[in-house]
Design a protein around this nucleic acid. Sequence first.
DNA 1: CTATAAACCTGCTGGC
DNA 2: TGCCAGCAGGTTTATA
Length: 289
Amino acid sequence: MPELPEVETVVRGLDAVLPGERVARVDVRWQRSIATPPPARFVGELVGREVASVGRRGKFILVQLMPAKWLLVHLRMTGRLLLSASVDEMDSAHTHVIIGFASGLLLRFEDVRKFGRLYLVDDPLQVVGDLGVEPLSSEFTVPQFSAALAHRRRSIKPLLLDQSLLAGLGNIYVDEALWEARIHPARAADSLSSSEITELHSAIRDVLWRAVERCGTTLRDFRDAANRPGSNQFSLAVYHRTGEPCLRCGTPIVRCVLAQRGTHYCPHCQPSSAESSTLAVGGVCTGSL
DNA sequence: CTATAAACCTGCTGGC
DNA sequence: TGCCAGCAGGTTTATA
């Protein structure tokens, strides 16, 4: 669930509170939540260090520690990183890691589906080294994006979900951005015109920035570090709006499966090819190319 | 390179 | 009302 805007929201909440806090104890209740190093070393090397800052790279949360070390967290589908002052809130059956600070402040990692992971490393590049461009950074430009899509025959949606191309998009915001840019999710990346690439570049930034302003999308699980839901779910154009009218043309939104992911689009605004806008039929997804 | 499937997990939903 | 197959926003790994 957490994509770039949700992770950014969590990071902002943590960075407002954690810098200066010193780790006093660590309780690992589900060992597999720790990706590296082995849990005993993870605990031993975390205790005593002080938080310098909290940042984000793609969907990863980066906690810079002193003496030099980095704690990285990926929330995957249902992970949460929550701040609290008292232990009685720790009862959740889904609390897998608790970090207690010297001040008494507590940070807990909970995750219903147990897909989320924590990493303690010397260099964050060990974990995030293969990530692509940050879509909200100045490095994400139309020429850069255009070059990245050139000669790629894959469908545009799965390509946009590839974190080594662009870091931070997930299923929700890819569907939203493609709707905003009026591009069918199954279009081959190298078939997009330069104006479509420009539209898509702009749509990606708009969709992500809007969601950050609204503190993320809470369809079900997402909470920020203070356990508050986001509000971007009220601004979605296609995601989870199957059968509801397109906000531009009124045509019912269609859902199909593309690259094993639920995919939502407007069959009228997002024709599967430039010539077939009047042929696009609701309920069918032209997945094969 | 591209595509597909399965795996990691649990909880919720919809259909019968 | 109750049960159960199927599905969920992410990523990695294996296979073709």
